[in-house]
Design a protein around this nucleic acid. Structure first.
Lengths: 330, 330
DNA sequence: GTGAAAGCGCTAACAC
DNA sequence: GTGTTAGCGCTTTCAC
């Protein structure tokens, strides 16, 4: 592998000048810059990242702790983070944690620190208690209040609370006396937020708050919820689309028509939501913009430590009305 | 940040001995090992990866080129790769490419090489023509024949051909005269394999081969296929579950009952497959085992270059029969 | 605008 | 079993 000295020799300049060119530093004449780039091209030179990291103390990479699940939400968020990271010029290290993993987030953080990342993103965190690792880089927690003790913890989140409120209000607006809720696992902050938003919407309208069914995000748990849904229920807000689909399946089997007898709203807008029977009313999560905002914060914290963080504004809520919701039966 | 010399000083040994302990090298007495680990613990010492990489010439990391989509298949594969990489002790760098991205795979490879990975995994490749980058590390292509020119290219794949064949045979076995196919985009090797398997199954039974509808993996394209499905068709094999779901939606709207009038088989076994109406017959992809086998090959190629590669055996096919398939109408 | 020297924190090769 | 000596290929600092 060619080194920067080789390029320097061929271009007839010092090694430091090669370094200047490859780091886009000022004070290099256009002529020299050209000669260096030509020489590099000719030799097939690439900057050695390990050497650069060792000398500079920074790796220009960030680590993501993802959930080990192909669920639409977490997978979309991960992709959003990758795109956003690429745009900021940072490389991305990914580690996943399974739910209930004993090593868990602490182990994941530790392995990322071993890899020498400049910052860490915790995607879709679960409330697993405090994280007992000393972290000396900024941490961005996506979708939850600061859940662990590090010197610099940042947060960005989809406004799940408002999204859930809007979904619930949509059903109340249609004339339903109240709205039932099939919640996600309450150890997930994302699930808690949705439940809170639903609760807030009911309270604001003085609607009775029916008991909550807590699912596990799977269509199977939604199905189970559907089998247990009280006979007088006319509207349900499910905390994700998969559970909504399972719920509808159970209702269909029981001879209860959606939306004539029972209206259902989901959450996520998964790609098939428009094509299930009936097409699902749902709210779409703005994964990309959350990832982008969050990473901007993180990069800022990495590159301008100590400085105040830029403020970001919340996203608008995207309610997508399809055929699974209607006024209650007469 | 403490360095290994600091640990050495505290433990009363040489710096090299600290290195030995942290690399699990032999020839360190149990007593010395303990002292070193205690000292490291006390100082909060972590091995510096950049220095290690610079000195050893290896980063112990591999890069993945993932597709920029939250589709169930690609997302599952990515997670499988992450788990497998973790098990082998390699860190994972992820880059995604959007379909039709001009920089494309070449740009992704280049950025991973800049990051200094020891090997590269190309997940779910698309036939985008040759990749014009000089690659000097082993490359594992998951799910396709060697599509690019690098000194060491390996392949591992789900046996999509056989899986498609089994799916098609299931329908023929039920008595259908032939089976229609809603294919995936043919630039994807994965889509091509499924089409070939379907074609092979028909040929083996001397069944007529109806024209193929080429979708784009989305439920919407499956819906479109459903609208165009000939009136005499009684069985369809869709190249993924989302398209199958869209297809069923279109048939339902047209008053054609599934499975009474038309049988449908999907591909993937997405989590909601069992809960759509009707529950979908499909084949499950063994993402985890493919990722595991592939990474074993890659790590072998990294660590024992030149040696023959271990042979891996294909996976069995997992046909999951649910309610979307039945004998043809009388 | 450009260059020389020092050193980032490890591993490799070899001596003891 | 353990220690010594050289780098790995850059960035940093400072001189010109």
């Amino acid at each position: 592998m060619p080194r920067s000295v080789d390029v320097a020799r061929l271009a007839g300049v010092s090694q430091k000048t090669v370094s200047r060119v490859f780091n886009d530093e000022p004070y290099v004449s256009a002529d020299v810059r050209r000669r260096v780039l030509d020489a590099a091209e000719q030799l097939g030179y690439r900057l050695n990242n390990a050497a650069r990291a060792l000398a500079s103390g920074r790796t220009r990479s960030i680590g993501v702790i993802a959930l080990g699940t192909a669920l639409y939400g977490p997978a979309s968020l991960l992709l959003g983070i990758e795109r956003a990271a690429r745009d900021t010029g940072y490389a991305l290290h990914v580690v996943s944690t399974a739910e209930g993993d004993p090593a868990g987030v602490a182990g994941a953080v530790s392995s990322l620190l071993d890899q020498g990342v400049d910052g860490i993103v915790v995607s879709e965190p679960i409330d697993d208690g405090p994280v007992p690792v000393k972290v000396d880089v900024p941490v961005l927690v996506l979708g939850a209040p600061p859940a662990f003790a590090a010197p610099r913890v940042l947060t960005a989140s989809v406004n799940a609370h408002d999204m859930a409120r809007v979904a619930t209000e949509h059903l109340l607006d249609l004339g339903h006396a109240t709205v039932h809720h099939v919640a996600g696992p309450q150890r997930w902050f994302a699930a808690k937020d949705r439940l809170d938003g639903w609760r807030a919407a009911l309270a604001a309208r003085d609607a009775a708050e029916p008991p909550v069914f807590e699912g596990d995000w799977s269509a199977g748990s939604g199905y189970e919820a559907g089998r247990q849904l009280p006979a007088d229920a006319t509207a349900v807000f499910a905390a994700n689309d998969d559970m909504a689909i399972g719920l509808i399946r159970a209702l269909t089997e029981a001879g209860r028509k959606v939306p004539e007898d029972v209206s259902v709203v989901g959450f996520d807008d998964v790609p098939v939501a428009a094509y299930v029977t009936p097409p699902l009313t749902t709210v779409r999560q703005p994964f990309d913009s959350v990832a982008r905002e969050g990473l901007a914060l993180l990069v800022h914290a990495i590159e301008q430590p100590g400085q105040a963080l830029p403020v970001t504004d919340g996203q608008q809520v995207d309610l997508i009305v399809r055929a699974s919701t209607a006024p209650p039966p007469a």
